[in-house]
Structures are given as structure tokens and as C-alpha cells.
């Protein structure tokens, strides 16, 4: 599992209680700091400083938690100088994205936008430019916040995560990477180095999020990736939900579409099943019934947008 001991997200920490004594402190507890120069160096530092040492990338999840003293690492191993983690490489059937790639770089990349429009959809609504300039894809996946947007994106794109540790490198399917809220397959002494996105023809994707305000975490969001067969039927569909209490993909919602020709009725059915698959909890962002409604509404929207993007079957949809 990654990172820090007790980790309800910083957003939840407003109700005092953060320091254990109840005062909402906003400076971190004492810690030490080291700057890694390479992946090997980072692994060595993690090993040397032991279980209470943690990687820091953009710091936009870890630092807020430290300031509220929800996280108290003894050592921070800063990987921002590790140039080998900043790549963005298109190959024939895969896009390889280094773990230190910033949100802003993903949003700026034409390659990313062309291959995976869902990434741009999501990046446009992740935080604000200041956060996007620093926050990284590795940190987002490493944080594994249930309201974090790139997790859903990686889920529906069936990404793979490359993890390097003392025992060498392993490639983990995104489904196996997640172990639950704030828990991943990346151990404390390991490093996420890369995320791989398979490139597929006749496919597209979309993401939509409802937020109370720009820069806010999702009230709810949905993402979809579709692959159409030659005959215009769905060959593969992946639907994911953010902040809606669903781990992994909404498989039943996707299953009703596969092999079928797109129609509004089918999308509505997929939306309904996505809502059934969700198990949201009430919070300040909204009650359960509303969030369930959003699971349905947003699922239909992202499927529709994916279809529009793949350039198919507008006619069929209108007929539906």
C-alpha cells in the first residue's frame, strides 16, 4: 500500500480534530527531506529511511494532508528532479506516460487529446491551473482518493501501471493496482514510474463531472471508453464512476451495450445500471438520491459524447 498512515482526504478534515487535540493546525509536524536524482536513488532513499518515508511528487495531495497533520511522514523523498519520469511517448499501440507528468502537460498534449479525449475532459476539471501545474499522474494514482478523476480515466482506458521496487519492475493492470480508497498495489518502498494506455482504433472516450464550483472535487463524475466493431455495434465498453462509491468499472452497465447497436434506449439502460452499481454516500456535496441520479445522467452523457466523437451512428441515436 502507498503512503501515509491514516488518510481521509484533506477535504474532509475541516471539522477540527486534525491534530488529535482538535485544533485545525495548518502547519505540518516536523519532517526530514531528501531529493532523489534518479529512480534508483529514490528507491535507495526510501529503503534507507524506512517505512515512514514517503515519495512526494507535486505535493498537492500530500502537503495539504501534512499541514492538517492527517499525514505525518518522517521523511519526504522528493522525486521532482527525476527527469526519467517525465516522458510522454506514443508508440504503435500504447501511449507511455511517465509518473511525473503534470496535469498541465497532459492537458497541453495534442497526442493525448487525439488519442484519449477523456483525459482532456478530465484534466480541464481537475482543480485549477495552479494545482495542475504541479500535480502529477503518478501522485493522483498514488493518492487513490475516491473523488480523484484520473483513476476513473485510467480505469476505463484499461491502463497499466508500471511499478519499480527493490525486486525490480512489474506491470500491473489498473484494476489490480487499486486496493480501495487510499490504497494501491504500490508499496511504500516502491515507485510508480509509468502509466501505459493501450491505443485502439475506432474507439473514443469522454468524461463529465459535476462540481459545485470550478476547482472543487467531484460531486460525482462518470467516464466512458468505447470501441466500435466494423458493423457499428459496441465491441467493448468501459464505464467508470468517480466519487460514487464504485470500485473499478460498472461492468453490468457496459455489458448491456456490447454487441448492440447504439440507441438512446440502450444508453438509458446503461445509465440506469450504472446508478444501480453506484453506492454513494451523503455529504456536503449532495444526498444519495441526487448522486445516484448523476450516475445515471452522466453515464448517458459520456456514452453519447464518446459515440459522437467516434463519429458513428448519430442517426441511430436520433432514431432511438
Amino acid at each position: 500500500m502507498t503512503a501515509v498512515t491514516d488518510k481521509p482526504r484533506a477535504t474532509r478534515a475541516s471539522a477540527a480534530g486534525s491534530s488529535g487535540k482538535g485544533c485545525p493546525v495548518q502547519v505540518p509536524a516536523p519532517f526530514d527531506y531528501a531529493r532523489a536524482t534518479s529512480v534508483a536513488d529514490a528507491l535507495e532513499l526510501l529503503e534507507r529511511h524506512g517505512p515512514e518515508s514517503h515519495v512526494i511528487a507535486g505535493g498537492h495531495s500530500l502537503l495539504p494532508m501534512m499541514k492538517l497533520r492527517l499525514a505525518r511522514p518522517e521523511w519526504l523523498i522528493d522525486i521532482n528532479d527525476v527527469a526519467e519520469l517525465g516522458h510522454l511517448t506514443e508508440e504503435a499501440d500504447v501511449l507511455r506516460v511517465g509518473a511525473l507528468t503534470r496535469h498541465a502537460a497532459l492537458l497541453d498534449s495534442d497526442v493525448v487529446g487525439r488519442l484519449f479525449p477523456i483525459v482532456h475532459d478530465a484534466e480541464k476539471v481537475i482543480a485549477d491551473p495552479v494545482v495542475r501545474n504541479r500535480g502529477t499522474i503518478g501522485g493522483s494514482l498514488g493518492q487513490a482518493d475516491p473523488a480523484e478523476d484520473l483513476t476513473t480515466v485510467c480505469d476505463v482506458l484499461r491502463a497499466q501501471v508500471v511499478i519499480v521496487g527493490p525486486a525490480g519492475e512489474r506491470v500491473v493492470d489498473i484494476g489490480d493496482f487499486h486496493r480501495g480508497p487510499y490504497e494501491t498495489a504500490c508499496e511504500q518502498n516502491e515507485l510508480i514510474t509509468e502509466v501505459r494506455f493501450p491505443i485502439r482504433a475506432r474507439s473514443s472516450s469522454a468524461y463529465e463531472k459535476v462540481e459545485r464550483r470550478v476547482g472543487d472535487w467531484a460531486v460525482a463524475a462518470a467516464g466512458a471508453a468505447i470501441l466500435l466493431a466494423e458493423d457499428g455495434t459496441f465491441a467493448d465498453v468501459a464505464i467508470g464512476l468517480t466519487a460514487l462509491g464504485l470500485e473499478g468499472l460498472a461492468t453490468e452497465a457496459a455489458a448491456v451495450l456490447v454487441g448492440e447497436r447504439p440507441s438512446e434506449e440502450l444508453l438509458a439502460e446503461a445509465g440506469r445500471l450504472a446508478a444501480v452499481a453506484s453506492s454513494p454516500v451523503e455529504d456536503q456535496r449532495g444526498p444519495v438520491d441526487y448522486k445516484r441520479h448523476l450516475a445515471d445522467e452522466l453515464t448517458r452523457r459520456v456514452l453519447r459524447r464518446s459515440l459522437e466523437r467516434v463519429g458513428a451512428t448519430a442517426g441511430a441515436l436520433q432514431g432511438g
Partner: peptide, 18 residues
């Protein structure tokens, strides 16, 4: 009696985009 608006993550103020 826990205050639910104790940070700018929970107490939202508008930005130029709203």
C-alpha cells in the same frame, strides 16, 4: 456541532469562472 465549512475546500467562494 462540528463546523463543516472550516476550509476553502468546504467553504466555497466563487472564482472568475463562476
Amino acid at each position: 456541532g462540528n463546523c463543516l465549512g472550516g476550509s476553502f475546500m468546504d467553504y466555497l467562494i466563487p472564482t472568475a469562472l463562476e
